[in-house]
């Protein structure tokens, strides 16, 4: 199993590497387009600000590489948001994989949402064998619920906790920080 975590300078990738290590898989951190294309599975991480992360992707040419991948790809947190059409954060275009626009939470809830919330309406292979449970989130922006949603959560309103289109998967939460439940989701991704 060749697992590559895309290392484009946006975020804490050490935790994701460790989470796979706990599952017995040694991930390669890379920004090399050939290594990414040749991987069996690809993780697209990210924390921080959307427009500056997109700028890093454009500068490195990785935006096209990611959008053209044919193997299973998992975007995590900001990674998932960047896979959408656009983000309100820094008014940036995204990779256009998921057909939705990322927007900011209203101030009728505390922003960012930080902590453990329940995911529901689970469907698809990523949640194989899993019931609704708590996952860890830290975010100020969200993807609205769409036909591409494979899990939802509620914070003031119902939003996409996970999205899927073809070989592309995205999760708003941090599976690497969501205890044994999150580990099971990562393990399901490895089994795709």
């Amino acid at each position: 199993m060749k697992l590559v975590i895309i290392d484009y300078g946006a975020g804490n990738i050490q935790s994701i590497k460790f989470a796979f290590q706990r599952l017995g898989v040694e991930a390669l951190l890379s920004n090399d387009s050939e290594q990414i294309k040749n991987a069996d599975k690809v993780i697209f991480p990210g924390v921080g600000e959307a427009s500056s992360a997109m700028t890093k992707l454009w500068e490195s040419g990785l935006h096209d590489v990611i959008a053209d991948l044919k193997q299973p790809v998992l975007g995590i947190c900001l990674g998932m948001q960047l896979m959408c059409d656009s983000s309100e954060e820094g008014a940036t275009k995204g990779l256009g994989i998921f057909n939705t626009d990322v927007v900011r939470f209203n101030s009728d809830v505390k922003v960012p949402q930080i902590g453990w919330n329940k995911i529901e309406n689970l469907r698809g292979d990523l949640f194989q064998g899993l019931e609704n449970d708590y996952i860890y989130l830290v975010h100020s922006f969200y993807a609205p619920k769409t036909i591409e949603s494979i899990a939802t959560s509620t914070y003031g309103l119902e939003y996409s906790a996970a999205l899927q289109k073809d070989n592309f998967y995205g999760v708003q939460f941090h599976p690497e920080k969501s205890g044994t439940y999150g580990a099971k989701i990562l393990s399901n991704f490895l089994a795709l």
């Binding site: 935790s15 920080k177 044994t180 580990a183």
Partner: peptide, 29 residues
């Protein structure tokens, strides 16, 4: 970070962008 599967915060004497960078690089959330 290697062992823990829930988030954690680190504090104490942090005073620069460089300090924070090192801690986040090593796996602090």
């Amino acid at each position: 970070a290697e062992k823990l599967n829930i988030p954690f915060t680190v504090g104490g004497g942090i005073s620069s962008v460089e300090d924070v960078d090192i801690l986040l690089q090593n796996g602090a959330d």
